[in-house]
Amino acid sequence: MIVLKYLFNALIFPGALFTILAGFLLSGLDRKVIARMQRRIGPPLAQPVYDFFKLAGKENIVPAAANVTAYKLAPVLSFVSLAFIMVFIPIFSFSAFSSKADLIVILYLITIPGVALIIGGSASGSPYGAIGISREMVTMMSYELPFVLVLLAVAKKAGGDQLVFSLKEIGEWQAVNGSMLLHWSMIPAALAMLLVIPAEVGTQPFDVAEAETEICEGPLCEYSGAPLAVFKLSTCMKMFIMTGLFTAMFLGGIRTGFAGTDAILFVLICCVVTILCITTIHAITARLRIQHLFQFYWTYVTLLALVSLVLVWFGL
Protein backbone atom coordinates (compact mmCIF):
# COMPACT_ATOMS: atom_id res chain seq x y z
CA MET A 1 0.00 0.00 0.00
CA ILE A 2 2.72 2.42 0.98
CA VAL A 3 4.59 1.50 -2.16
CA LEU A 4 1.50 2.21 -4.23
CA LYS A 5 1.14 5.58 -2.54
CA TYR A 6 4.75 6.42 -3.27
CA LEU A 7 4.36 5.18 -6.81
CA PHE A 8 1.34 7.42 -7.25
CA ASN A 9 3.35 10.31 -5.83
CA ALA A 10 6.26 9.63 -8.12
CA LEU A 11 4.27 9.06 -11.30
CA ILE A 12 1.14 11.20 -11.08
CA PHE A 13 1.10 13.86 -8.40
CA PRO A 14 3.34 15.67 -7.63
CA GLY A 15 5.79 13.57 -9.62
CA ALA A 16 6.15 12.93 -13.31
CA LEU A 17 2.77 13.77 -14.84
CA PHE A 18 2.06 16.90 -12.82
CA THR A 19 5.60 18.15 -13.29
CA ILE A 20 5.49 17.54 -17.03
CA LEU A 21 2.19 19.40 -17.45
CA ALA A 22 3.29 22.29 -15.28
CA GLY A 23 6.66 22.36 -17.02
CA PHE A 24 5.01 22.56 -20.44
CA LEU A 25 2.80 25.36 -19.17
CA LEU A 26 5.74 27.35 -17.81
CA SER A 27 7.81 26.79 -20.92
CA GLY A 28 4.95 27.81 -23.21
CA LEU A 29 4.25 30.86 -21.10
CA ASP A 30 7.92 31.77 -21.16
CA ARG A 31 8.00 31.68 -24.94
CA LYS A 32 4.74 33.55 -25.30
CA VAL A 33 5.70 36.33 -22.90
CA ILE A 34 9.17 36.80 -24.29
CA ALA A 35 7.65 37.11 -27.75
CA ARG A 36 5.33 39.81 -26.48
CA MET A 37 8.28 41.57 -24.87
CA GLN A 38 10.00 41.55 -28.24
CA ARG A 39 6.81 42.70 -29.98
CA ARG A 40 6.24 39.39 -31.68
CA ILE A 41 3.04 37.41 -31.53
CA GLY A 42 4.80 34.25 -30.42
CA PRO A 43 3.84 30.60 -30.54
CA PRO A 44 0.66 29.21 -29.00
CA LEU A 45 0.85 28.26 -25.34
CA ALA A 46 0.91 24.56 -26.17
CA GLN A 47 3.88 24.88 -28.51
CA PRO A 48 6.29 22.93 -26.21
CA VAL A 49 3.84 19.99 -26.30
CA TYR A 50 3.75 20.02 -30.09
CA ASP A 51 7.53 20.30 -30.18
CA PHE A 52 7.91 17.38 -27.85
CA PHE A 53 5.74 15.02 -29.87
CA LYS A 54 7.19 16.16 -33.15
CA LEU A 55 10.73 15.52 -31.89
CA ALA A 56 9.78 12.20 -30.33
CA GLY A 57 8.56 10.99 -33.71
CA LYS A 58 11.79 11.86 -35.47
CA GLU A 59 14.54 9.46 -36.29
CA ASN A 60 17.13 8.76 -33.62
CA ILE A 61 20.72 8.63 -34.86
CA VAL A 62 23.53 7.41 -32.65
CA PRO A 63 27.01 8.58 -33.67
CA ALA A 64 29.70 5.96 -34.14
CA ALA A 65 32.01 7.52 -31.57
CA ALA A 66 29.32 7.36 -28.90
CA ASN A 67 29.12 4.95 -26.04
CA VAL A 68 25.67 3.74 -26.97
CA THR A 69 24.44 2.67 -23.53
CA ALA A 70 25.42 5.85 -21.73
CA TYR A 71 24.25 7.94 -24.65
CA LYS A 72 20.79 6.42 -24.54
CA LEU A 73 20.45 6.16 -20.77
CA ALA A 74 21.44 9.75 -19.98
CA PRO A 75 18.14 11.38 -21.00
CA VAL A 76 16.16 8.72 -19.16
CA LEU A 77 18.20 9.31 -16.01
CA SER A 78 17.63 13.03 -16.31
CA PHE A 79 13.88 12.61 -16.73
CA VAL A 80 13.37 10.09 -13.94
CA SER A 81 15.43 11.97 -11.39
CA LEU A 82 13.50 15.14 -12.14
CA ALA A 83 10.22 13.31 -11.68
CA PHE A 84 11.49 12.20 -8.29
CA ILE A 85 12.75 15.55 -7.08
CA MET A 86 9.29 17.06 -7.20
CA VAL A 87 8.17 14.44 -4.69
CA PHE A 88 10.46 16.06 -2.13
CA ILE A 89 9.16 19.60 -2.58
CA PRO A 90 6.06 20.35 -0.52
CA ILE A 91 3.18 22.06 -2.33
CA PHE A 92 2.16 24.38 0.48
CA SER A 93 0.45 22.15 3.03
CA PHE A 94 0.80 18.99 0.95
CA SER A 95 4.06 17.09 1.07
CA ALA A 96 4.45 13.61 -0.31
CA PHE A 97 7.65 12.37 1.29
CA SER A 98 7.10 13.75 4.81
CA SER A 99 9.61 15.66 6.85
CA LYS A 100 12.64 13.51 6.24
CA ALA A 101 13.23 14.97 2.82
CA ASP A 102 15.39 17.95 3.39
CA LEU A 103 17.29 20.71 1.71
CA ILE A 104 20.52 18.77 1.29
CA VAL A 105 18.79 15.84 -0.35
CA ILE A 106 17.13 18.23 -2.77
CA LEU A 107 20.39 20.08 -3.38
CA TYR A 108 22.06 16.84 -4.39
CA LEU A 109 19.15 15.43 -6.37
CA ILE A 110 19.04 18.62 -8.42
CA THR A 111 22.60 17.98 -9.56
CA ILE A 112 21.64 14.60 -11.07
CA PRO A 113 19.91 15.99 -14.19
CA GLY A 114 22.99 18.13 -14.77
CA VAL A 115 25.20 15.09 -14.39
CA ALA A 116 22.96 13.17 -16.80
CA LEU A 117 23.34 15.93 -19.37
CA ILE A 118 27.10 15.85 -18.88
CA ILE A 119 27.27 12.08 -19.25
CA GLY A 120 25.15 12.27 -22.38
CA GLY A 121 27.26 15.00 -23.92
CA SER A 122 30.46 13.26 -23.00
CA ALA A 123 29.26 9.88 -24.25
CA SER A 124 28.34 11.34 -27.62
CA GLY A 125 32.06 11.72 -28.36
CA SER A 126 31.61 15.08 -30.00
CA PRO A 127 34.03 17.97 -29.39
CA TYR A 128 31.06 20.33 -29.15
CA GLY A 129 29.76 18.05 -26.45
CA ALA A 130 33.12 18.25 -24.69
CA ILE A 131 33.10 22.04 -24.67
CA GLY A 132 29.48 21.97 -23.62
CA ILE A 133 30.03 19.69 -20.66
CA SER A 134 33.03 21.68 -19.50
CA ARG A 135 30.88 24.80 -19.50
CA GLU A 136 27.97 23.01 -17.89
CA MET A 137 30.24 21.85 -15.09
CA VAL A 138 31.67 25.31 -14.52
CA THR A 139 28.13 26.69 -14.48
CA MET A 140 27.23 24.13 -11.83
CA MET A 141 30.21 25.14 -9.73
CA SER A 142 29.27 28.79 -10.18
CA TYR A 143 25.75 28.71 -8.89
CA GLU A 144 26.39 26.07 -6.24
CA LEU A 145 28.00 28.49 -3.78
CA PRO A 146 25.19 31.09 -3.70
CA PHE A 147 22.61 28.30 -3.81
CA VAL A 148 24.13 26.68 -0.72
CA LEU A 149 24.26 30.02 1.08
CA VAL A 150 20.60 30.67 0.30
CA LEU A 151 19.58 27.25 1.59
CA LEU A 152 21.54 27.74 4.81
CA ALA A 153 20.07 31.22 5.33
CA VAL A 154 16.55 29.85 4.96
CA ALA A 155 17.33 26.98 7.31
CA LYS A 156 18.78 29.31 9.92
CA LYS A 157 15.86 31.71 9.67
CA ALA A 158 13.31 28.96 10.18
CA GLY A 159 15.30 27.10 12.78
CA GLY A 160 16.79 29.73 15.06
CA ASP A 161 18.90 27.82 17.53
CA GLN A 162 17.68 24.48 16.23
CA LEU A 163 18.83 22.67 13.15
CA VAL A 164 15.95 22.71 10.68
CA PHE A 165 16.71 21.42 7.21
CA SER A 166 13.31 20.01 6.38
CA LEU A 167 11.32 21.93 3.77
CA LYS A 168 8.11 20.81 5.42
CA GLU A 169 9.10 22.33 8.74
CA ILE A 170 10.26 25.46 6.94
CA GLY A 171 6.79 25.63 5.35
CA GLU A 172 5.13 25.22 8.74
CA TRP A 173 7.32 27.94 10.21
CA GLN A 174 6.23 30.24 7.41
CA ALA A 175 2.58 29.40 8.01
CA VAL A 176 3.00 30.69 11.56
CA ASN A 177 5.44 33.56 11.08
CA GLY A 178 4.53 34.70 7.60
CA SER A 179 6.33 33.84 4.37
CA MET A 180 10.09 34.27 4.16
CA LEU A 181 9.72 37.00 1.59
CA LEU A 182 7.91 39.15 4.14
CA HIS A 183 11.01 39.21 6.35
CA TRP A 184 13.25 41.95 5.04
CA SER A 185 16.47 40.17 5.95
CA MET A 186 15.59 37.38 3.53
CA ILE A 187 15.07 39.61 0.51
CA PRO A 188 18.74 39.50 -0.64
CA ALA A 189 18.62 35.70 -0.42
CA ALA A 190 15.42 35.66 -2.46
CA LEU A 191 17.09 37.82 -5.11
CA ALA A 192 20.08 35.51 -5.15
CA MET A 193 17.79 32.53 -5.57
CA LEU A 194 15.99 34.26 -8.42
CA LEU A 195 19.37 34.63 -10.12
CA VAL A 196 20.31 31.01 -9.45
CA ILE A 197 17.17 29.70 -11.17
CA PRO A 198 18.04 30.77 -14.75
CA ALA A 199 21.54 29.30 -14.45
CA GLU A 200 20.18 26.03 -13.13
CA VAL A 201 17.60 25.84 -15.91
CA GLY A 202 20.11 27.07 -18.48
CA THR A 203 18.40 30.05 -20.06
CA GLN A 204 19.90 33.21 -21.41
CA PRO A 205 22.18 34.89 -20.35
CA PHE A 206 23.41 31.81 -18.48
CA ASP A 207 22.99 29.30 -21.31
CA VAL A 208 26.70 29.17 -22.12
CA ALA A 209 26.67 25.39 -21.90
CA GLU A 210 24.13 25.06 -24.69
CA ALA A 211 24.95 28.19 -26.63
CA GLU A 212 23.25 27.32 -29.94
CA THR A 213 25.01 29.96 -31.97
CA GLU A 214 28.55 29.02 -31.00
CA ILE A 215 28.66 25.36 -30.00
CA CYS A 216 25.43 23.93 -31.44
CA GLU A 217 23.75 23.23 -28.09
CA GLY A 218 26.89 21.70 -26.62
CA PRO A 219 26.02 18.41 -24.91
CA LEU A 220 22.87 18.06 -27.03
CA CYS A 221 24.80 18.56 -30.25
CA GLU A 222 24.61 14.97 -31.43
CA TYR A 223 21.22 14.15 -29.98
CA SER A 224 18.21 13.67 -32.17
CA GLY A 225 14.75 12.19 -32.00
CA ALA A 226 13.25 10.83 -28.80
CA PRO A 227 16.32 11.27 -26.55
CA LEU A 228 16.53 14.92 -27.56
CA ALA A 229 12.82 15.27 -26.88
CA VAL A 230 13.35 13.87 -23.39
CA PHE A 231 16.18 16.31 -22.74
CA LYS A 232 13.99 19.21 -23.90
CA LEU A 233 11.24 17.93 -21.64
CA SER A 234 13.73 17.82 -18.77
CA THR A 235 14.46 21.50 -19.25
CA CYS A 236 10.74 22.29 -18.96
CA MET A 237 10.46 20.15 -15.82
CA LYS A 238 13.54 21.78 -14.33
CA MET A 239 11.88 25.15 -14.82
CA PHE A 240 8.94 24.06 -12.74
CA ILE A 241 11.06 22.39 -10.08
CA MET A 242 13.34 25.34 -9.53
CA THR A 243 10.55 27.88 -9.38
CA GLY A 244 8.64 25.46 -7.18
CA LEU A 245 11.59 25.27 -4.82
CA PHE A 246 11.66 29.05 -4.69
CA THR A 247 7.96 29.12 -3.90
CA ALA A 248 8.30 26.49 -1.19
CA MET A 249 11.23 28.27 0.43
CA PHE A 250 10.14 31.89 0.24
CA LEU A 251 6.34 31.83 -0.14
CA GLY A 252 5.60 28.63 1.74
CA GLY A 253 3.25 30.19 4.27
CA ILE A 254 0.17 30.10 2.09
CA ARG A 255 -2.60 27.69 3.05
CA THR A 256 -5.91 27.36 1.24
CA GLY A 257 -6.99 24.20 2.97
CA PHE A 258 -7.41 21.98 -0.09
CA ALA A 259 -4.70 20.10 -1.92
CA GLY A 260 -6.31 20.91 -5.29
CA THR A 261 -6.50 24.66 -4.83
CA ASP A 262 -3.05 24.59 -3.25
CA ALA A 263 -1.63 22.96 -6.33
CA ILE A 264 -3.29 25.44 -8.69
CA LEU A 265 -2.10 28.39 -6.63
CA PHE A 266 1.38 26.86 -6.51
CA VAL A 267 1.55 26.60 -10.29
CA LEU A 268 0.28 30.15 -10.67
CA ILE A 269 2.98 31.47 -8.36
CA CYS A 270 5.54 29.44 -10.28
CA CYS A 271 4.32 31.16 -13.46
CA VAL A 272 4.91 34.56 -11.93
CA VAL A 273 8.36 33.55 -10.72
CA THR A 274 9.22 32.17 -14.15
CA ILE A 275 8.23 35.39 -15.86
CA LEU A 276 10.21 37.36 -13.31
CA CYS A 277 13.47 35.50 -13.30
CA ILE A 278 13.61 33.52 -16.52
CA THR A 279 11.64 35.45 -19.12
CA THR A 280 12.47 39.00 -18.15
CA ILE A 281 16.18 38.36 -17.71
CA HIS A 282 16.21 36.44 -20.98
CA ALA A 283 14.56 39.29 -22.81
CA ILE A 284 16.88 42.02 -21.60
CA THR A 285 20.31 40.39 -21.66
CA ALA A 286 22.77 38.77 -24.04
CA ARG A 287 24.72 35.62 -23.35
CA LEU A 288 27.67 35.85 -20.94
CA ARG A 289 31.01 34.22 -21.42
CA ILE A 290 31.82 31.34 -19.14
CA GLN A 291 34.50 33.09 -17.12
CA HIS A 292 32.23 36.09 -16.60
CA LEU A 293 29.41 33.83 -15.54
CA PHE A 294 31.63 32.29 -12.90
CA GLN A 295 32.76 35.72 -11.73
CA PHE A 296 29.19 37.00 -11.59
CA TYR A 297 27.99 34.16 -9.38
CA TRP A 298 30.95 34.02 -7.06
CA THR A 299 30.88 37.78 -6.45
CA TYR A 300 27.52 39.54 -6.76
CA VAL A 301 25.12 36.67 -6.23
CA THR A 302 27.21 35.16 -3.47
CA LEU A 303 27.41 38.52 -1.79
CA LEU A 304 23.62 38.87 -1.88
CA ALA A 305 23.15 35.45 -0.31
CA LEU A 306 25.90 36.08 2.21
CA VAL A 307 24.29 39.34 3.32
CA SER A 308 21.13 37.43 4.13
CA LEU A 309 22.96 34.70 5.97
CA VAL A 310 24.86 37.20 8.11
CA LEU A 311 21.72 39.21 8.84
CA VAL A 312 19.87 36.06 9.82
CA TRP A 313 22.80 35.00 11.93
CA PHE A 314 22.40 38.12 14.04
CA GLY A 315 18.76 37.38 14.54
CA LEU A 316 17.33 39.92 12.13
Binding site: L7, A10, L11, E59, N60, P63, A64, V76, A83, F84
Partner: peptide, 25 residues
Protein backbone atom coordinates in the same frame (compact mmCIF):
# COMPACT_ATOMS: atom_id res chain seq x y z
CA UNK B 1 13.51 0.75 -5.38
CA UNK B 2 10.99 3.17 -6.83
CA UNK B 3 13.71 4.90 -8.77
CA UNK B 4 14.86 1.64 -10.30
CA UNK B 5 11.30 0.63 -11.19
CA UNK B 6 10.47 3.92 -12.83
CA UNK B 7 13.87 4.12 -14.49
CA UNK B 8 13.47 0.66 -15.96
CA UNK B 9 9.94 1.45 -17.10
CA UNK B 10 11.05 4.69 -18.72
CA UNK B 11 13.89 2.86 -20.47
CA UNK B 12 11.49 0.27 -21.83
CA UNK B 13 9.10 2.92 -23.10
CA UNK B 14 11.80 4.97 -24.76
CA UNK B 15 13.74 2.12 -26.30
CA UNK B 16 10.72 0.20 -27.49
CA UNK B 17 9.37 3.19 -29.33
CA UNK B 18 12.55 4.31 -31.04
CA UNK B 19 14.71 1.21 -30.99
CA UNK B 20 13.60 -0.12 -34.32
CA UNK B 21 14.19 3.09 -36.10
CA UNK B 22 17.45 4.00 -34.47
CA UNK B 23 20.54 3.26 -36.47
CA UNK B 24 24.18 3.39 -35.79
CA UNK B 25 26.44 5.05 -38.27
Amino acid sequence: VLFVIVFAAACVVIFSSTGTRGRTL
